[in-house]
Design a protein around this nucleic acid. Structure first.
Length: 502
RNA sequence: GGAGCGUUGGUCAAGGGGUUAAGACGCCUCCCUUUCACGGAGGAAUCACGGGUUCGAUUCCCGUACGCUCUACCA
């Protein structure tokens, strides 16, 4: 079995690959891999005015980060190249003309202004079988008039000639039998005045030319599917049509409705896999930059609209390929929950081996780890990974291993600070300096011993000690921290804080 | 307005004629931890409504309500 699964996305200044888009790609990918098929990506840049340089690269960077790399590089060719619709422009016109010749479509010369007027005059105006008789098209014009208009180079579009009262139906992989009455569907534009196809013509022609057998897309496409079904019937035969799967929408967390990038800004979470730069230069943050691991991102996305029916929630890409099944994809939309997304990431950080985390943690911490070797960094990661849900949490949780804490929260200890404690730490410094042993257990023993001698409860001293080493009330066990940063650094930090407390 | 699609706790969801209606996130309580997390043990909270069919409906059927998507020479 050689199945090809089509992935589509339109790069545009207002686009970017957001959650819903990546999930569509993911499900395509899983299905393709599972069935031993090909996974290809096509760029739908039919509206050139909205195409931005770099958007294409952005898409592939995103797919790469997620581990969803297409089998044929749409940028560098392949058996079905080119993949940019703008480069396939010529092939579409031919099919549109064919439709006109066969009576399934017609030329329409109405200008944008004329249509605007109509829309103002008639509420809910639709260019359809009920209105096309009153419009300026090859159906109302004589053949000679049409020929002349075309010869004179009048701008025109080609619209589909929707049949009257035909039951158009198909079997959706997720929803089962879906049907529409053709009388209620308008005469969609297939070929625009600039010669570019609209999505409706392009999907059908491209899917045919690229021999696509299964097509996944968002639920928002369902209402226009009758146009596509009819086009398949007219052009290539309904038997050659790919199987459709209309995926449920990803909804905004509050209220209802499709998740939009505005929601991300408003609610403070990313809706893009990676940072996306808008035409105006503003940036929508990405999951990657927020400190997500690609595995966690993909895992989280897969569970949004699909469920294996077991209690398993954590999946690798390989496991997803194995377990994924299209009939367990839900029909209803799912609200996006950022808290759950973070939970997935925390779980993945715990699952990750230290070595796997190392380079990512180094990247997050930046310059401050420059002078430390991997062995030291690995120990830090081991001590802190379970308390991080995002990679960026390593900044808070582990910076103090590499440098003096930026702020020392002395406010936490000052109220109960007294001379007795001050003397304890002065003595501790002396004692630490003399000691030869410096493992966490040794430090703890010294510390408690000295506390006993000074008739102080260790409990009263632990917090001050922590604040001195860490700067705040967080982090792993103090004695383990002391061991790792070393005797010299420990003493230095005690002295530093003691000075602050004077 | 029209068409299509949908509706199990706050969220993600399993289930599918008879169940104490799984599990996860979040929330709350307790334990562990002389910090914060992690971890562990508990807890509150759900089948949109109305009619059928049936001995019995959350589950099947029909309505209603509500929500969403589409209704562009955007995808």
């Amino acid at each position: 079995m050689n199945k090809k699964v089509r992935v589509r996305f339109a790069p545009s200044p207002t686009g970017g690959l957001h959650l819903g888009g990546v999930r569509t790609v993911l499900f395509n990918y899983l299905f393709a891999k599972q069935n031993g098929g090909d996974f290809i990506v096509r760029i739908e840049d039919t509206d050139q005015t909205r195409f931005v340089e770099g958007a294409e690269k952005y898409i592939f960077d995103t797919l790469q980060w997620c581990g969803l790399v297409p089998d044929e590089s749409p940028v560098h060719g392949g058996p079905h190249a080119p993949y940019r619709q703008s480069e396939r422009k010529e092939s579409y016109r031919k099919y549109a003309e064919q439709l006109v010749k066969d009576g399934y479509a017609y030329y329409a010369f109405d200008t944008a202004e004329e249509l605007d007027i109509k829309r103002k005059e008639i509420s809910n105006f639709q260019y359809s079988q009920h209105t096309r008789d009153g419009m300026n098209n090859s159906l109302t014009l004589t053949e000679a008039e049409t020929e002349k208009k075309l010869a004179d180079g009048n701008p025109h579009v080609i619209r589909i000639n929707m049949p009257e009262n035909v039951d158009v139906h198909f079997n959706d992989m997720i929803r089962g039998e879906v049907s529409f009455n053709s009388s209620l569907v308008d005469d969609k534009v297939l070929l625009k005045a600039d010669g570019m196809p609209t999505y409706h013509l392009a999907v059908v022609v491209d899917d045919y030319l690229m021999q696509i057998t299964h097509a996944f897309r968002g639920e928002e496409w369902l209402p226009s599917s009758p146009v596509h079904i009819l086009l398949w019937q007219y052009l290539f035969g309904i038997d050659n049509m790919p199987a459709w799967a209309h995926l449920p929408l990803i909804l905004k967390p509050d209220g209802n409705g499709k998740l939009s990038k505005r929601d991300g800004d408003r609610l403070g979470f990313p809706v893009f896999a990676m940072d996306w730069t808008n035409v105006d230069g503003s940036i929508n943050s990405g999951f990657k930059e927020r400190g997500f691991l690609p595995e966690a991102f993909v895992n989280m996305l897969a569970m949004l609209g699909w469920n294996p029916g077991t209690e398993q929630e954590l999946f690798t890409l390989e496991e997803l390929i194995e377990k994924f099944s299209i009939d367990r994809v839900h029909k209803g939309g799912a609200k996006f929950d950022f808290e759950k997304a973070k939970w997935f990431n925390g779980e993945w950080i715990k699952r990750y081996k230290i070595e796997g985390l190392r380079s990512r943690v180094k990247e997050v911490l930046g310059d401050i780890v420059a002078n430390y070797d991997d062995a030291f960094i690995d120990k830090v990661i081991e001590l802190t990974k379970d308390r991080c849900t995002l990679l960026n949490d390593f900044i808070q949780q582990s910076s103090f291993f590499f440098q003096l804490p930026e702020t020392i929260e002395i406010a936490s200890i000052q109220p109960k600070w007294d001379e007795k404690k001050n003397l304890f730490f002065i003595e501790a410094i002396r004692m630490f300096q003399q000691s030869i042993l410096w493992e966490a257990t040794d430090v703890e023993a010294f510390f408690k011993e000295l506390a006993a001698v000074n008739e102080l409860k260790p409990g009263e001293l632990m917090l001050p000690f922590r604040i001195m080493l860490v700067g705040g009330k967080f982090g792993p066990g103090v004695f383990e921290i002391a061991e790792l940063i070393g005797k010299k650094e420990t003493v230095k930090r005690i002295e530093y804080t003691l000075a602050l407390l004077k």
